[in-house]
């Protein structure tokens, strides 16, 4: 049997910071904590939208508008939006750090991911809390059933 020597891991490109908040540690914890919550939120989202009733073929403005007229689903979707985008953005940051070798490329790619995450979190949160499930002047057959009572 030949002896195997295991090389020392790469030495860090800059000295290890000993003071202040350890952001990498909190990122690591966030991926696991948000992951557990996202399993519940996303499996619930998929089951409600794709498995119940007629699934994907029943999804239209009436379906989504009726759902998002309910604060329960508003908060469900906003929690999913924030947790998933930050989880996904942090995951993309990990991949960029692994595969983009030039500091310039890494900076550009990570800035693009950050911009996409921030813009979509703001957009999604505004849409969920400001949209009207019964917009005036729209044909009644396109609207959620709850609009007929108004």
């Amino acid at each position: 049997m030949t002896a195997t020597t295991i090389e020392a891991p790469r030495s860090p490109s800059r000295p290890v910071k000993r003071r202040g908040v350890n952001w990498e540690k909190w990122g690591w914890i966030y991926m696991r904590a948000s992951g557990i919550v996202l399993i519940v939120l996303i499996f619930g989202h998929l089951f409600f939208n794709l498995m119940l009733g007629d699934g994907i073929s029943a999804i239209d403005f009436g379906f989504v508008g009726g759902k998002l007229a309910d604060p329960f689903w508003q908060w469900w979707d906003v929690a999913m939006l924030w947790l998933a985008l930050i989880h996904g953005g942090n995951g993309m940051r990990t991949l960029i750090n692994d595969y983009a070798t030039l500091p310039m490329t890494r900076g550009v790619l990570k800035s693009a991911v950050l911009a996409a995450v921030v813009v979509l979190i703001v957009l999604g949160t505004l849409v969920v809390f400001t949209f009207d499930p019964c917009p005036p002047g729209q044909p009644a057959d396109l609207l959620p059933a709850l609009c007929a009572a108004r």
Partner: peptide, 16 residues
């Protein structure tokens, strides 16, 4: 998926 869902804020026709 966030962009397509955001169309509920535009109009029912656009989303559908």
């Amino acid at each position: 998926h966030i962009l397509d869902t955001a169309l509920i804020r535009v109009s029912p026709e656009a989303y559908n």
